[in-house]
Simulated assay, not measured.
Amino acid sequence: MTKILVVDDEKMIIEVLEAYFDKEGWEVYRAANGIDALKKVKEVNPDLMILDLMLPDISGEEVCRLTRKDNDVPIIMLTAKSAEDDLINGIVIGADDYVTKPFSPREVVVRAKAILRRVSKTNISNQLSFNDGHLCIDPVKKQVTLQGNPLSLTPNEYKILVAMASFPGRVYSRADLLEKITEDGVLFEGYERSIDTHIKNLRKKVEGDSRQPTYLLTVFGMGYKFGGTPDESIPSN
């Protein structure tokens, strides 16, 4: 059964979301503050977390940041903020999506379903290895290793990396990559810029020198491409 952790100090919001999630047959867990949320993540190991930014003890941003240290659970943030910089900041610390208050519970369900489908879907069947095993992607374990050391990637970072690595040399526009993490054609205004943030974060994790990348290359005026040399036969286009 799909497990959803809803973190909000407003009881009514939790009850409304719980009612909608119950209709989907999902198991719902509650947390009214950040400390309880961090405990529940470890105890329950949820498939998805709905996280309010404004909590009575620690902020939702801090909960997200601490969760991301050792858990890649998808996170949808609930926020009253709508400024683009605030949304980008949430993506930087590891959020997968945002819903701005006041929101439609149906919209939350739609976005939750889309994220769960993305996370559960395996894009490729065989392990990918590049530059004599320097970078490896195991889609079964959903694990990426660099020089044998596992990397901690957010679900969106992982999906972008897999999409690009599956076709080295192919140029992806920001819109192309956005579609990889927002399926069903559900695109939201202003989100293309978030791809730059994901790429920047990925470079910090997979590149020896993010200013002179080997794998995640910028194609000026067009987008990005994967520059690693495959150790096995992979389609080039």
Rank of each mutant, 00 (worst) to 15 (best):
V44F: 05
V44G: 00
N45H: 13
P46C: 01
P46D: 01
D47K: 11
D47V: 04
D47N: 13
L48W: 10
M49H: 04
I50S: 00
L51N: 03
L51P: 08
L53D: 02
L53N: 00
L53T: 02
L53P: 03
M54G: 06
M54L: 11
D57T: 10
I58N: 06
E61P: 02
E61V: 11
E62M: 12
R65N: 09
L66H: 14
T67D: 01
T67N: 10
T67G: 08
K69C: 06
K69S: 03
K69V: 10
D70R: 11
N71W: 08
N71A: 13
D72G: 05
P74E: 00
I75H: 07
I76E: 01
M77I: 08
M77L: 09
M77G: 04
L78H: 00
L78K: 00
A80W: 02
A80H: 02
K81C: 04
K81R: 15
S82Y: 08
A83W: 03
E84W: 13
E84G: 01
D85I: 14
D85K: 13
D85A: 13
D85H: 13
D86T: 05
L87Y: 03
I88P: 07
I88Y: 09
I88R: 14
N89I: 02
G90C: 10
V92C: 08
I93M: 09
G94N: 04
G94F: 10
G94R: 06
A95D: 07
A95S: 12
A95G: 04
V99Q: 09
K101S: 05
P102F: 10
F103M: 00
F103Y: 10
S104E: 14
S104N: 14
S104P: 05
S104H: 11
P105W: 05
R106T: 15
R106L: 14
E107L: 12
V108H: 12
V108Y: 05
V109P: 02
V110R: 15
R111Y: 05
A112T: 04
A112K: 10
A112G: 02
K113E: 06
K113D: 01
K113W: 03
K113Q: 14
K113M: 14
K113L: 12
A114H: 04
A114W: 01
I115D: 06
I115C: 02
I115K: 14
L116F: 03
R117W: 02
R118T: 10
R118K: 12
R118H: 00
V119Y: 09
S120F: 08
T122G: 10
N123C: 09
N123E: 15
N123Y: 12
N126F: 07
Q127I: 13
Q127M: 14
L128C: 08
L128N: 06
L128T: 08
